[in-house]
Simulated scan of single mutants.
Amino acid sequence: MAGTWNIDVPAARGVISSTAASVSDLQRPLEQMRSAVEGLAAAVPSAVVQQALGSLLEMTLSPAVKDVVDRSTTVVSGTSGAVGHYVNGDLVMASTAASSAASIHTK
């Protein structure tokens, strides 16, 4: 892919940090949802409904929530790594350019 890259690293890191905090902030509401479904199951006087709610929680909601958190964490981590590689690449290129410039022989 040809072209130039110009990433505003401090801004990118700010977005990454904010997104990571948002992913972390998901934990409490998700725990509250789990507690609410468990509370509902405990309040219903039907074993069939209690079993259905338990299955909903264990087979659908919990895996889906885990998947969202895992994928979000992977995206944040990957993006952070990519920005780090971008910064390191810039440093390597700058060092290579400086070395090259220093080794130019003038007549």
Rank of each mutant, 00 (worst) to 15 (best):
D67I: 00
M33L: 15
V75K: 02
S24H: 07
T106F: 14
I7G: 05
L57D: 00
H85R: 14
A101P: 06
D70R: 00
L53M: 05
D8F: 07
Y86R: 02
S22V: 14
V48L: 15
S99L: 12
L91R: 08
P29E: 11
V9R: 03
V69I: 12
T96M: 15
V9A: 08
M59P: 00
S72K: 02
S46A: 11
E58T: 15
A42N: 12
D25L: 14
N88M: 12
L30T: 10
G89N: 07
M59N: 10
M1A: 15
A47T: 13
H85I: 05
S18Y: 11
A82P: 04
S95V: 05
V87E: 09
V92T: 06
V23P: 03
L61G: 01
S77C: 04
G54V: 01
V65M: 10
I7L: 10
S62F: 00
V37D: 02
A2P: 09
S99M: 10
H85A: 13
M1T: 12
A12W: 03
Y86N: 00
E38K: 08
A82I: 08
E31L: 15
V92C: 03
G39R: 06
L91M: 05
S17A: 15
T60V: 15
V65T: 09
A43D: 12
A11I: 09
D67F: 01
A47I: 13
G89R: 02
T19H: 07
V49H: 07
G89K: 03
S80R: 05
S80L: 06
M33F: 12
L53T: 00
V23R: 01
L91Y: 08
Q32M: 14
S95M: 11
P29D: 08
T106K: 10
R28I: 10
D90I: 12
V75R: 02
L61P: 03
M33Y: 12
T19V: 11
L53K: 00
S62G: 05
G89S: 11
A97R: 11
S95L: 12
G81T: 04
S62E: 08
T106P: 07
D8H: 04
I7F: 07
S77Q: 10
S24Y: 01
W5F: 09
V37P: 02
R34N: 05
D8N: 13
R34Q: 11
V69K: 00
